[in-house]
Structures are given as structure tokens and as C-alpha cells.
Nucleic acid binder design. Sequence first.
DNA 1: ATGGTAGAATGTCTA
Length: 261
Amino acid sequence: MRIASWNINSLRARMGRLLDVLDTRQIDAIALQEIKAKPEQLDLAELEARGYEVAAHGLNQWNGVAIVSRVGLEDVEIGLPDMPEYDGVAEARAITATVGGVRLTSLYIPNGREIDHAHYDYKLEFLDCLTEHGRSLLAKNPSAPIVFAGDFNVAPTDADVWDPSFFEGKTHVTPPERRRIRALEEAGFRDATRDWLDAPGTFTYWDYTSRRFQKKQGMRIDFLFSSPAVHEAATGAMIDTEERAQKGTSDHAPIILDVSL
DNA sequence: ATGGTAGAATGTCTA
């Protein structure tokens, strides 16, 4: 089974790009982030014609997550247990479904904005909530096949950004954010793509501004954090930088994992 | 030509 994750930066603006990625890479299930739409605004005809089912969660023009699968899509859950709110709103940042025997969650972790912004504290709380949830799931069943897929908005090490000095004083690289990624790893989840892709300059996101993709100035902030059962079943991974090179695509590249469960 | 895109409530926030 081939599973993927992609911050698509508007599903309506890029439905054609999604279909192209699904066709070209023969993806069975993909977790999408920043769909930027309510479910009723989406035209799913072309996905359904290809045999894909869709579960989408979006409240307005911001955030929004979805799962698209041609290997079944069951037991959909919105949000996370005890998920933190922002300004009193439970935002559209998590959706979960069982696809091909894997419990897949599509996650759009809050950006954090500035270090002294309330959004940064919200981001840390959200990551704490996710780790607690993962810990709880594995306590119940250590061999559960789980993937936390998405845009984590954290570069776990200095090697995951094109120039650490550029990010001094900025979010995405601070010790508290990085500690939370390590806590998720200590809970039993590993980014399954990193075992296959660890060369310097391996990134998943390149800012539109300053044409950072053309300059190879990216960040590695998208991951497929996998439980041991999935991680041990992984047979390969790729980051679709060919898609990121396309005209009119997202500022993130799709990340792809093959698993033999 | 000092660098500065893209998407969404069409104006300004978000990333």
C-alpha cells in the first residue's frame, strides 16, 4: 500500500494537481492539509470516478484537513481527544480514518506565528495533545498500525532547514517545539520517511516568496510519524519534488511511504 | 530590477 501526506494549500485551487499526483504516483491513500474549504464546497466527482472515497473537515477558508482513499475509508473521527482550542474555536486541524488497515490521521499543526504570540503556545499545546493521544493508543495496543501524517510546522534539527541562522528568533526551530517532536518519538512514533531519505537538503516545503524552491532553500516540516507496526512494514519512501517544481502547485511537496502490512 | 507569492470572505489575514 502506498500512503501519502500533502499540505495542498487549497483543494479547490489544486484538484487537478491532486489528480495528477494520484495518477502519476499511484497513491492508495493520502492525508491532505490546508484544504481551505468546507466539505460542501468541494467537487469530488473526478476523485470518485477514480474510485477514491473522501472524508473532509473544514470550517471556513482557513486550515481544513481531509483523507482520500481507494483502499477503504472507515470509522472517521473529527479532531483529537482533548484538542486545544484557539480563540474558543476547535479548528479543522485533525481528521482520522481507517484506510487499508491503517489508522491514518491527517494533521495540520498550528503554525505558531511568532514566539511571543498566543498561537505559539497553542502550537505547543496541540503537539502535547497529539503525543498524549498517541501514547494512549499504543498503551491500549502496542502493535496498532497508526500514522500521524501531516504538516507539523517544526523542523526537528538544524539539518532540516536550509540556513539555521535565517531562523534565529523564529518559530519552527525553537527548543520547545523540537522537544515536542522528540516526545512524540519517545512515545513510539517515528517519521518513517527519514529512514529512506536522510541526505542533506532533503526538504518538504519551500516558501513561495523569494522563490526558495529554485534556490533549494527549504525546510523539512512534513512527516509520516508511524507506530512500530507501520514503521517495521515500510519498504520505501519518497518526497515528490517533481510535483513541487510544477507550475501552480502547493508550497509543500507530497511525501510518500510504501508499506507492506 | 534592492526582494516580495499565493489563496481565501474583495480586502486583508494567513502562511
